[in-house]
Nucleic acid binder design. Structure first.
Ligand SMILES: [Zn+2]
Ligand SMILES: [Zn+2]
Ligand SMILES: [Zn+2]
Ligand SMILES: [Zn+2]
Lengths: 133, 133
DNA sequence: ATTTAAATTGTTATAATATAACACTATGTA
DNA sequence: TACATAGTGTTATATTATAACAATTTAAAT
């Protein structure tokens, strides 16, 4: 069973923006990204949002919905942005992608009463990290 | 074991806005709420956001993070907005709060590798509802 | 190699979502 | 009554995100 994702060739803007997010120790917000790539010629919000949309779509980054921020995926087994889980410290805002086989298995198989079958989920846990406790 | 939540007395603005959301068949967005309550004297976005913040805090409504929209809680066992799960149809945008004892038990007990203990979570499932399939 | 379709880019303008700051008012409680 | 806490009204502004259009690049398909 070949691993067969994340083999996209990024375009110039996508690569610039991915590199920035990937280097960042914390999730980045769109306008902060914009500010940081202006020296590389990316001048308009839309250029940033378009790259972000694509990067999310192909699973290279994820959006933290409750923070409107973007984080690079470092989870090699991540199902191309279809199943994401994060832990968020409410004090220091440290955010980590959770990689738990049992969690993803449980959620992937979850079916609600209506028999609705889900193709995707996003889970955000909130609490206090070790440092902040 | 007494059930001891959601016994808050709402203020005028909070009540007006809660009633509107509670009657709505679908989640409502802040500026749509604003438009709908202007005839009742609520004129500014901040008045709406302040009421929304409070209503979320006391668990009368929840925010659907991926949609920036608000839905009334109809889940009597809901742990005061500390543990929420929703199903979202990506075609018709029908959104339902999921009430599953096994799901909430699983998530409430979930611990990640770092030993971080979570006080809250929000889960959003995406897929196609029965009608849209 | 040439044509065609699809994706990406650049740009300006604008829409949609959310908060800051300040003065004032109501409410609870010691 | 005095004090603290929460809520209100208001104006202005910050932040997040998309619409619309023209041009260019890239990838496939003849
Ligand atoms: Zn990931
Ligand atoms: Zn922390
Ligand atoms: Zn609820
Ligand atoms: Zn549907």
């Amino acid at each position: 069973m070949k691993t067969m994702h994340k083999e996209h060739t990024l375009t110039k803007n996508q690569q610039i923006i991915f590199d920035l997010i990937d280097k960042s120790p914390e999730p980045m917000k769109a306008y902060s990204i914009l500010f940081n790539v202006q020296k590389k010629g990316i001048k308009a919000p839309l250029q940033v949002y378009r790259a972000l949309d694509k990067l999310v779509e192909i699973g290279k980054i994820h959006k933290i919905e409750s923070r409107n921020a973007f984080i690079a995926c470092h989870n090699s087994s991540c199902q191309v942005s279809k199943a994401t889980a994060f832990s968020i410290c409410e004090i220091c805002e440290k955010i980590t992608e959770i990689s738990s086989a049992s969690l993803s298995k449980y959620l992937a198989n979850f079916k609600d009463k209506d028999g609705m079958k889900y193709s995707k989920y996003n889970l955000e846990f909130f609490g206090l990290c070790k440092k902040c406790r």
